[in-house]
Nucleic acid binder design. Structure first.
Lengths: 374, 374
DNA sequence: CTAAGCAATGAATCGGGAC
DNA sequence: AGTCCCGATTCATTGCTTA
């Protein structure tokens, strides 16, 4: 295929109205990134005093929970009419909206094939320390009716994942740097641009070359860009003319068949599989309150629930406390501290060894147990 | 205290009925792992009371969807009554049920604090190769009403995560090997036993020592086991007497021991020294007229007898003056202002730290002299 | 020229106690 | 109930500036 595909469509306007104009059962896949209805408060500050640019666009404001339900049912129903019976639909969202989306999918009779969790490797921090760092978005994958055949390119995804079957949580970075579309002044063009790597996996898994992919919330056209790269056709609907123009420009600039490495790359397994003291406590290898001693029993400390040690009012990591008590600059806590095992005092490190050997033996057990059906 | 905590309760029966017997606003935390594979079809009648024979798939689907909604609303409402206004609730589920649960939480007026995704390091493979490997479960964290204060032990979780704030996706293994409870024949006792490490993070994050944790679907008592280890009380409700017996046996076998709060709760670094600047002046840790400087010496001010700072005619609290001079909206004066100590300029906060450690050492001294105060 | 340091920023439902 | 104000709080990455 050369240049822009004449079958691709850029449609301006409200997605429900535009979808109603499309022929019934005419697309093979729907990928939708609807507004999340974030309901943000005003003026969150960074610790340094800077302000956080939250999503404050009109399109993300809804009057009520019920209004968002109505909106969701409307576009899902319209999408369902356009979708072929053997096609599937993806929706991405966050905890703010995804439960309403999933609920309405089931209520409308869609059959859920599963969900996939995008685990962001570099999410925005939680600046106030009041909650967990929100580092995920959720995609729901569904078919319009239970039991129909559907496209799932199992082996393509498996080879993308180092020849192990692809799991439903994907560690991928957010869009940054030159991949992020900018306006004339260097500001981000769209507040919620998705990484192409995410769409790459979605389209590769659930569509085939020549298929038509519909994105009712096209934005700046990430779905179209990846569809183009992968030889799929697309229909993009967007109500903001500026976004739609940017999308067209972006997609028409892509050389056919161009596949940057960043799309295909699988993150190498993390090198730092070292075990922290906190992990041993979490997993119950040593309990909070348990006593540990230095080699000759000169120092005594107690294990705290977060994996640190407490002794005479000071607390610190096994290494830091050991160093402090000895008046030294450093100390290997794994060797310095002893824990009672079967009547004798063994180095803390033996707990790590026990954990490692236990993990190995359950692995073997698991592998010899391949009987359970799906 | 030794042995089982007399405050802990093992309640047999339907969770809604048992929760209705508990006092209103009596628990600090709810952790719920509701079933989703209910055989709901059996007792269901079509609207109008038509015969069950020849039930088509749609009726079955919509009836069971509605029945699971009813079930979910019933137990969530009962749990909400028992939960204190400042408490929080966790629910764990999979894509089969979590969207209904999340939807009903929001519909009932719960406010979502976020969700956490358990990413299983060793999930069951998908044997048919028709879907992604289902390697996650989702936990929703909610409070009964928006805007109330709630417990979140930020620093404890940060410690568990190598001193970086804890994200909302947790890589943890499924329960295997000796941790997995078995029946007499070596088969797993409960189909959905959760890892203690999961509950460890949940309880450490969102409860305090001495709090009461309610688990309405107690199963084999993982919640109770971890609550016991972490110095929390629990109420476990389970309708299967076999499970409840196994849970009691399991928990009572855990070595008890009363743990000081300091070992099972990590307080923020400064919690014990929230002292006003005026107090430091009053007690002579810093003298009126003494000079303080901003980090790089750009601003200079003098301490006034009432604890405020004076600089170039303006006066104000250490925070207000710091903010004013920098032209910022806010400023933490304890970090911003430096005071000379032993030839170098240390943050004002070190004075508070010195005062706190001096107080602590007198405490220890007193205790070592076996003097009982009062 | 490179290396180091500093600044900017990303779908965010991000206080609480005293008066 | 509203207002004031103290003071607690950030991770990974990119790109520009400075040494």
């Amino acid at each position: 295929m050369n240049g822009p595909n004449q079958m691709d469509q850029y449609l301006l306007g409200d997605c429900v109205a535009r979808m109603r104009e499309l022929p019934e059962a005419s697309v093979d896949l729907v990928f939708a990134d609807p507004p999340y209805n974030l309901q943000l408060g005003a003026g969150l500050k960074r610790p340094g005093g800077g302000s956080v640019a939250g999503v404050d666009a009109d399109w993300d404001r809804f009057d009520s929970h019920a209004a968002y339900d109505d909106f969701t049912r409307a576009w899902l129903s319209a999408a369902r009419r356009v979708l072929r019976p053997d096609g599937t639909l993806w929706v991405i969202g966050s905890f703010h909206n995804i439960y309403q989306v999933g609920y309405q999918l089931q209520a409308l009779g869609f059959w859920l094939l599963g969900d996939v969790h995008w685990a962001k490797t570099n999410p925005m921090p939680n600046f106030r320390g009041k909650r967990f760092q929100n580092a995920t978005e959720t995609m729901i994958w569904a078919q319009p009716n239970k039991g129909r055949p559907y496209t799932f390119n199992y082996h393509a995804l498996k080879s993308l994942n180092d020849d192990r079957q692809m799991r439903n949580w994907w560690e991928l970075p957010i869009v940054q740097g030159t991949d992020r579309l900018k306006d004339g002044e260097g500001n981000k063009l769209h507040p919620t641009q998705k990484p192409e790597a995410l769409l790459y996996r979605v389209l590769l898994a659930s569509s085939n070359p020549g298929d038509t992919v519909l994105d009712p919330f096209f934005g700046t056209g990430t779905t179209g860009a990846v569809a183009h790269r992968l030889g799929r056709r697309f229909v993009g609907i967007e109500r903001d003319p500026g976004y739609l123009t940017a999308a067209r420009k972006r997609i028409e600039a892509i050389a056919p068949g161009e596949l940057p490495d960043s799309l295909v790359q699988v993150r190498p397994p993390r090198a730092d599989r070292r075990i922290a003291m906190a992990t041993l406590v979490e997993e119950g290898w040593i309990a909070p309150g348990q006593e540990v001693r230095s080699r000759c029993g000169r120092f005594v400390a107690q294990v705290r629930a977060d994996g640190k040690l407490v002794s005479a009012g000071s607390a610190g990591s096994i290494h830091a406390l050991g160093a402090q008590l000895q008046g030294r600059e450093s100390c290997n806590g794994w060797d310095f501290w002893r824990v009672e095992r079967d009547g004798s005092w063994a180095p803390l490190d033996t707990l790590r060894a026990m954990r490692a050997s236990a993990a190995e033996s359950t692995m073997t057990e698991e592998m010899s147990r391949h009987e359970t059906p799906d």
